[in-house]
Design a protein around this nucleic acid. Structure first.
Lengths: 232, 232
DNA sequence: CCGGATCCGTAACGATACTG
DNA sequence: CAGTATCGTTACGGATCCGG
């Protein structure tokens, strides 16, 4: 009857009571890209049951992680959006996602694994220096293997869209592949190196492209993201 | 029969495939304090089934998060210990644990919730500046409410023990309560303020006590732990 | 006593069907 | 589009048992 909890007065245990069940953190990951509808989530999270998604969304709303909102007039659709607690959780998830990158080797990649360019992008977007994006308004189209996603950087706000409808009004197109993104996320490769090696190709507005490289950290790694690193 | 995975080529999803199941991260938390025996874990993780613990330990060993080791002669007991991947995971868990602290309010604390001084200490220990502990060899006894734990800081290595057997050979005794630790972990209170307000009492070697305050961050908060904070 | 394995009832999840 | 209802399957929890 009652929800299963660990019954421990501990920050980690309490956090896991809230977001530790199956699918919950992946729902949060989806919302890190921006507000999403119920059917968007159902589509992105292949294998989740529709009733389980509804149940998880209710739990997350009760916990104050997200809230439900109706979009302004023309669309008027119902979307789920991260609140303050949800955005803080998003930041806390970056180290965990970077840790998990170690298990993203090509060998253990199953042939039927799904891939979306939005997935690495939402974590990389968390690493963008917001101070450098206050005066910007650019749209970056990322083509990672077969998947595309559009990252819109506007006045310090970042949204990521699945690239479907809109025409090619992106300022810069970034063409690369999954393995390169994994190598960069694992800290084995810098963005500059990847560009020099031709593993990333940039096309379009040169100024916008330069700003993109500038707003991202030179090298990504767990050690650089979480402070107070253990020396040894 | 095959293990349930998300089937997504994403760092977070892959990470959760490895450590996302029930109890797994709490096992890792226990090992953050130092090597532990099977029965120690069973005792600390109230409610876990004995077969589930064995299964989780096998999964974590297969994933390279921990390894099994037999202690040197006199004791000769079998212990589980974090490996490199496990220690990196430990660092990645700190932000998540600090996020979860927001749900540690006194109102929602159930009367039968268990508490162990080791739980907050393992995360706080991760925030200790290792550069400042290289030349140290001190033992700190933390009394948090009814629970005690001993933190041994030796040449940059930190181990945390349940305070049971050994006599009071601690260099410093720190007396405080659960609420104070939560307030500090949530960033609502600095350690200095807590000492001044009498919410933390320090007894023993004054030099060792001063070094303890010095090796800890002045204020703890998610924002200070994860870099590239979103400004707004 | 330590480190599990086995068994079984219950809770959680997954897939499909159905509804306002 | 945004869910609820139902039902078979898997995972978990508690107890018992077993070998070193």
């Amino acid at each position: 009857m009652t929800r299963r909890t660990y019954g421990q007065y501990c920050g980690l245990a309490r956090g896991l009571d809230v977001v530790g069940e199956r699918w919950t953190l992946l729902i949060v990951r989806e919302l890190m890209a921006g507000p999403r509808r119920y059917s968007d989530l159902l589509d992105a999270l292949d294998g989740i049951g529709t009733s389980l998604l509804a149940s998880r969304l209710r739990q997350l709303e009760d916990a104050g992680v997200l809230f439900k909102r109706r979009l302004p007039k023309p669309s008027a659709s119902l979307v789920y959006q991260l609140g303050d607690a949800g955005r803080e959780l998003a930041r806390a998830l970056v180290p965990l996602a970077l840790w998990g990158v170690r298990y993203q080797t090509n060998e253990e990649r199953q042939p039927d694994d799904t891939y979306r360019a939005e997935w690495p992008l939402v974590f990389i977007a968390q690493l963008i220096d917001r101070d450098k994006t206050q005066d910007l308004d650019y749209r970056y189209l990322f083509c990672i293997g077969d998947s595309q996603a559009l990252m819109q950087v506007r006045h310090g706000e970042i949204n990521i869209f699945e690239h479907t409808s809109d025409p090619d009004d992106a300022d810069v197109t970034i063409v690369t592949n999954e393995a390169t993104v994994v190598d960069i996320s694992a800290g084995r490769l810098t963005i500059t190196e990847a560009i020099q090696d031709g593993r990333i190709a940039l096309q379009g507005n040169d100024v916008a492209a330069a700003r993109l490289v500038d707003m991202l950290p030179e090298r990504i790694s767990l050690g650089s993201v979480v402070t107070s690193a253990i020396s040894e």
